[in-house]
């Protein structure tokens, strides 16, 4: 059935309106208010309503703001790339090499982490990655190490992956499992090598799902405060850490709002480009 052309009656509005009202109240409202707040002034620890550009010019003129900005983009990008690559063989195995039953259980297992507190898992990593921690204890049996992992980018990336890896594997697996097996079979019968089947059949057909997984991964890493702070030791600080720091300088919420808006615009753009590419119907050879 093709979507029906717009006809406004009680039935259609019942389904269309709730979300509009709800999002206006509790999503558009807060976001717009935050934009307004970025023009407010702070005097003696108290925010006063105003319309000044000083917060914007101040933040944009700070080198540390731009350092944080690019660092956050790079580390979140690295995390996305690594997570996608690390997830792929696992998802591939789950999609093509195991029975439906095992796949169902595997996906179920991958949902389990969502039921444990991310903070608690991070706290565990702390003890596992420490110089006197579990991994280095293992290495010392082999007369290796100790390796410094906490308070470095490795720590941050491990933290990001704790958050994103299960989700990315689920999305990749579901996407690949939905590919029509006949196409792969056909390519195989036509003499395609496994490598080129992956390159020419599987990846193009899973483009949408893969891009969406990557976008999600990037968004989650970009906005996460816990991993870079607790496992990365704020070396260097990412934008979410900068937001918290900014609020520690005598109620500078307006400047924190500036950082927040820049983050939002960045993520909107990336999500938009991602979704556009994901659903574009390009037929590459």
């Amino acid at each position: 059935m093709k979507p029906t052309k717009n006809n406004l009656n009680i039935y259609s509005l019942t389904f269309r309106l709730p979300i509009i009202i709800w999002q206006l109240l509790f999503f558009v409202g807060p976001v717009l208010f935050m934009v307004a707040m970025s023009f407010f002034l702070v005097k003696n620890y108290r925010m006063t309503e105003a319309f000044e550009f000083i917060n914007w010019t101040k933040m944009f003129s700070k080198n540390y703001f731009w350092d944080s900005y690019w660092f956050t983009i790079i580390i979140a990008g690295t995390s996305t790339l690594l997570t996608m690559l690390i997830a792929f063989p696992a998802s591939f195995t789950l999609a093509f090499k195991v029975s439906d039953n095992i796949r169902r259980w595997a996906i179920f297992m991958l949902i389990i982490p969502f039921f444990t507190s991310y903070l608690v898992r991070t706290f565990s990593w702390y003890v596992i990655l420490a110089e006197k921690g579990v991994i280095n204890a293992f290495f010392s049996y082999l007369d290796l190490g100790p390796f410094k992992m906490l308070n470095t980018h490795i720590g941050t990336l491990v933290g990001y992956m704790t958050l994103t890896l299960p989700l990315v594997i689920i999305l990749q697996t579901v996407t690949m499992a939905n590919i029509d097996r006949n196409l792969i079979e056909a390519a195989y019968n036509l003499g395609c090598k496994p490598k080129s089947i992956i390159q020419r059949v599987i990846i193009p057909l899973s483009k949408t799902g893969f891009i969406i997984a990557a976008v999600f991964c990037f968004i989650l890493s970009f906005g996460d405060f816990v991993a870079p702070f607790y496992l990365g030791g704020s070396q260097e600080p990412t934008l979410p850490i900068l937001i918290l720091d900014t609020t520690k300088s005598g109620q500078q919420w307006p400047r924190a709002a500036v950082v927040a808006i820049v983050m939002m615009i960045t993520l909107f753009s990336i999500a938009f480009i991602g979704i556009m590419t994901a659903y574009s119907k390009s037929f590459k050879k």
Binding site: Y64, S68, F71, S234, E236, L242, D245, S249, Q252
Partner: peptide, 12 residues
Amino acid sequence: EDWNDFWSEYKN
């Protein structure tokens, strides 16, 4: 704010 600005600079 001045102190905090410097602190952010220092961390970066």
